[in-house]
Nucleic acid binder design. Structure first.
Length: 618
DNA sequence: GCGGATCAC
DNA sequence: CATGGTGATCCGC
């Protein structure tokens, strides 16, 4: 087994079981060596190894007695978890096989017989199984992939295309569980319990589908879970010509692990029996578990933990050195516990945009970019009728160091001016406060602390009530061992946006006057006159370079930067602006459906009457 | 409240 | 030629 490092190929995906990992890792190292990215990964890894050393020495200081006590405490916790174990439901995790790649191969069959990946040269999103033979996989930059596989064909992403197929898939799944939850375009969970009960009453006809798209031959599926999922996968294939894999188990964590077992184009059902479950999960390498990434794996491996069973064996030490929440998570994992309710998040918590570019230190370019990102973000905010209270600037230096700077505003807003000002202030502060700051390669703007505009609040409250009440009632009797009961009651809503708009309108006007009087008076009779747009205030500038630069300098030094919404919108996107207005005036009746998201809770949420009489902890 | 770190997809 | 974008969460301070 190859050691976990930050650069080695991630071999935890399907289709990469028997590769020459030594050789692949060597090629990756060779191609990466000397890159700034590589150096940053090395720094990160060293930092983690240092932290691990600290942990290890802490462990040495524990007495045998302490560890034994911790182990007993862990056992008590595991026993309590056992009591909450719910084996009564049957979940299904559907996972489209190499989704983006499969769509592209369907569209262009010539791609079926060549190693191929979908993504940009910068980063691959996924690869087909032929390419995986070479070690080419998702989250690998194109140039490394070509190193591993010189004949690799790289196809650009086309998310609109994938969305069409995805919604076909989701629609089928919804017929088996209207409360299903999707996770990205290519994955979904469904709770089949209710469907399976109803299924026995379905006529044979209702379980019968054409064998092929336009064929008169038919195929009838039985009433078991196994056959139900075969039916789902068959229907997905009929609708999209793309295969899916599936896993079935009594909770979502296990179901997800099962969908990986017979991938691609296969399925696996895990018996809802405690011993079967424990045997299944405990043999798995820790990296297979969702929530255990490279860093966590590195830390656990330093404790000689490779498999889930090793987590169990080291439960005493883990209890002593890990955060309580991490310990809980690990205990649930090694006990085969997982969520048995599909949770849908009520409201998105942040919105943002970021972009990578060729490294630059040019303040003007950076500010201009920052403005664009803010605009893009605010556009989204406005069209979704959301207000924010916090803005965050993210930058990444050419050395791949990431910084974030954020600021909470005095009140909720969706004003382009306020948000742009704030984020540019943050950026300028970094630019001239940190003279050592290397050139940047990425910038991002994100807004958080979101809330719907007040006119939409009744709807919002309706949704959040719905989700919180169900979880609280379910959790009530197991309160002592189930963490994370949400109870945020957000209810202060005034019509503050109106006031704010007025306030800032006046500031804008003031600024515009300044601009007009002092800066825009640039000779236009000059022969080498050129026109350009000031990257700071967005005014059209006429004149020679000298005067333009002078204007820009003044603008840059201005303590506040103001522009008007009207001008910008009319210059850059009159159409969207029009649409937004429509949206604003008519959408009192439109629920904020777009922002209603589906999401899962990884903690088990239910207890039931099933008791386990025997102790399973080997 | 803010910033860093980790993770999933 | 030289390693992504979006969103969430947790922890420490």
């Amino acid at each position: 087994m190859s050691r976990t490092t930050f650069l080695n190929v991630d071999d935890t995906k399907a289709g990469m079981e028997d590769l020459d990992k030594e050789k692949i890792n060597k090629l990756i190292q060779e191609a990466s060596k000397n890159s700034k990215f590589f150096k940053q990964q090395q720094r990160r890894e060293e930092e983690n190894r240092r932290r691990i050393e600290v942990k290890l020495s802490k462990i040495k200081s524990f007495s045998t007695f302490q560890i034994e006590q911790a182990e007993k405490s862990a056992d008590r916790y595991l026993n309590q978890l056992d009591k909450t174990r719910d084996l009564s439901r049957i979940f299904c995790h559907i996972d489209m096989d190499a989704f983006y790649a499969s769509v592209e191969m369907r569209e262009n069959p010539a791609l079926q017989h060549v190693p191929m990946a979908v993504g940009g040269e910068g980063m691959l999103s996924t690869s087909n199984y032929l390419a995986r033979q070479f070690g080419v996989r998702a989250a690998m930059p194109g140039f490394i992939a070509r190193h591993l596989c010189p004949n690799l064909v790289i196809v650009p992403c086309d998310f609109n295309k994938y969305r069409v197929d995805s919604s076909k898939v989701m629609k089928i799944i919804s017929e088996y569980d209207e409360n299903y939850g999707s996770c990205g375009l290519d994955e979904a969970f469904a709770d089949l319990t209710n469907h399976l009960q109803k299924r026995s009453t379905l006529s044979e006809e209702q379980r019968t589908f054409p064998k092929e798209e336009n064929s008169t031959e038919i195929i009838t599926f039985g009433i078991t879970a196994e056959e139900t999922v075969q039916e789902i996968r068959h229907r997905i294939y009929l609708a999209t010509r793309i295969t899916a894999s599936a896993g079935m188990a009594c909770n979502m964590r296990l179901a997800k692990l099962c969908s990986d077992i017979n991938k691609p184009n296969g399925q696996y059902q895990l018996e809802s029996n405690v011993n079967v479950i424990l045997n299944f999960i405990r043999n798995l390498p820790i990296r297979k578990i969702k929530g255990i990434g490279k860093v966590t794996a590195l830390h656990l491996e330093s404790l000689q933990i490779q498999t889930v069973n090793d987590i169990y064996l080291k439960r005493g030490i883990l209890k002593l050195i890990e955060y309580p929440s991490t310990f809980d998570f690990l205990m649930r994992v090694c006990n085969g516990c997982g969520s048995t309710t599909i949770e849908h998040d009520d409201l998105q918590k942040s919105i943002g945009h970021e972009t990578t570019f060729n490294g630059t230190s040019d303040s003007l370019q950076l500010i201009s970019l920052c403005r664009d990102l803010a605009k893009k973000t605010v556009d989204e905010l406005i069209s979704d009728r959301i207000l924010c209270k916090r803005v965050t600037l993210k930058i990444k230096t050419v050395n791949f160091e990431i910084l974030t700077r954020s600021k909470t505003l005095s009140s909720y807003t969706d004003s382009l001016n306020i948000i742009t000002d704030k984020v540019i202030t943050l950026l300028k502060h970094e630019l001239d406060q940190d003279l050592e700051l290397p050139a940047l390669r990425l910038m991002g703007v994100r807004v958080s602390d979101l809330k719907m505009k007040s006119s939409d609040l009744p709807i919002l409250q309706f949704f959040s009530k719905k989700s919180t009440t169900t979880t609280t009632t379910i959790n009530e009797n197991t309160h002592d061992i189930i963490e994370d009961i949400d109870d945020d009651d957000d209810d202060d809503d005034e019509g503050e946006e109106e006031n704010l708009n007025e306030e800032f309108l006046s500031i804008e006007n003031q600024y515009n006057e300044d601009c007009n009087s002092k800066l825009i008076h640039i000779d236009d009779e000059n022969s080498n006159t050129s026109t350009t747009t000031c990257p700071v205030c967005q005014k059209m500038l006429l004149g020679d370079n000298d005067k333009i630069n002078k204007h820009i300098d003044l603008c840059l030094n201005g303590e506040m930067i103001r522009t008007t919404i009207k001008e910008q919108d009319q210059q850059t996107s009159p159409q969207t602006n029009y649409n937004k207005r429509i949206n604003l005036t008519q959408s009192k009746v439109t629920p904020p459906a777009k922002r209603q998201k589906r999401k899962f809770n990884t903690t088990p949420q239910q207890t039931n009457g099933i008791d386990n009489y025997f102790s399973k902890h080997i």
